[in-house]
């Protein structure tokens, strides 16, 4: 675990972090991974991962449409104008 991997993760998850906090996070992450070490030693050969926390299957909704009340949704937006959610200019 090094700063490069941490910075890559921070870049991926897009949260601004100061340099001091980065150092702190790196130390913390190293401790954390050390703390997690015992997990690797558990013998899980031939064990299928439990991907789901519930046993539900085939829960399906009928295909019917319904319009939601959009006015309350729009009020929650920090920058909504003329029908659009606005973000800084995106250059492809």
């Amino acid at each position: 675990m090094d700063m490069a991997e941490l910075e890559k993760a921070i870049g991926t998850i897009k949260i601004a972090v100061s340099d001091t906090e980065k150092e702190e996070l790196l130390a913390g992450l190293k401790d954390f991974l050390r703390w997690l070490e015992p997990v690797k030693k558990i013998d899980t050969a031939n064990v299928e991962p439990a991907f789901f926390s519930h046993g539900a299957v085939n829960i399906l909704r009928e295909d019917r449409s319904e319009k939601a009340d959009i006015s309350t949704l729009r009020r929650a937006a920090p920058d909504f104008d003329e029908g659009f959610y606005r973000v800084p200019p995106v250059i492809d």
């Binding site: 029908g83 659009f84 959610y85 606005r86 973000v87 800084p88 200019p89 995106v90």
Partner: peptide
Amino acid sequence: IHSPTGDASLVD
């Protein structure tokens, strides 16, 4: 969508 004024992008 890119706004005509170029100061923002618009999401639909």
